[in-house]
């Protein structure tokens, strides 16, 4: 976790979810890139964050893309967040005794039979133990700090713009206290109509 650094957080809002990460890629204390993406779109309504060892970030991103594409083309429909969470879990557990050093965080909207969308967030440890939270989930080198700030700032039923502000402040303030995270941030707010993506500057040191 500390080798490359990086952190991800996801939060539930009112009929929406948000997921955010920093953009640093490091080699221990040396910064390599300030534009290293750790969050990837899985479908139009699911985003996956992969903080941890950077080689596994890329490998897992490509592996999940392969598995989700095969699922989509065979099932002839997009994967739902619950099913995807279990796909993540079983993919990681396949490597139970030689794991990928990644703690995934996912955020999405589940389509209910009534046609409404229900917010969904989940996180997993590096061997696939799922945690379905109702409020927020954190992971990465700044996770301990993220817990503290999120606990203080998050409240239920935030509208998309308020959720954006809450998750952005949570992430920015948490990574400022972490030497391995930072160098800019990216935030995605997923609503039933669209996904709002914004890149933030923050402290670039």
């Amino acid at each position: 976790m500390e080798y490359n650094g990086g952190s991800v957080v996801a939060m539930v809002g009112k009929g929406c979810v948000a997921i955010a990460s920093d953009l640093r890629l490091g080699n221990q204390a040396l910064g390599i890139s300030s534009n290293f993406q750790k969050i990837f779109p899985i479908t139009d309504r699911i985003y996956l964050g992969l903080p941890g060892l950077a080689t596994d970030v890329t490998t897992l991103k490509e592996q999940f893309r392969y598995r989700v594409n095969m699922y989509t083309i065979k099932e002839e429909r997009e994967i739902e967040p619950e099913a995807f969470a279990h796909l993540v879990s079983s993919t990681l557990y396949e490597r139970r005794f030689g794991p990928y050093f990644i703690e995934p965080v996912m955020a999405g909207l589940t389509k209910k039979p009534s046609g409404e969308y229900r917010p969904f967030i989940a996180a997993s440890d590096l061997i696939g133990c799922l945690n379905f939270a109702k409020d927020f989930v954190v992971a990465g080198t700044a996770s301990s700090k993220l817990f503290g700030v999120a606990e203080g700032l998050w409240e239920p039923d935030l509208e998309p713009e308020d959720l954006f502000e809450t998750i952005s402040q949570t992430l920015l303030n948490a990574v400022d206290r972490d030497a391995y995270s930072g160098w800019g941030a990216i935030v995605h707010v997923i609503t039933p109509e669209s996904v709002i993506t914004r890149t933030l500057k923050g402290r670039m040191d």
């Binding site: 490509e62 592996q63 893309r65 392969y66 594409n69 095969m70 083309i73």
Partner: peptide
């Protein structure tokens, strides 16, 4: 064909 195409995407991005 679908499997072959996805394997190519996996190997070569």
């Amino acid at each position: 064909a679908r499997t072959a195409a996805q394997r190519h995407l996996y190997s070569y991005n």
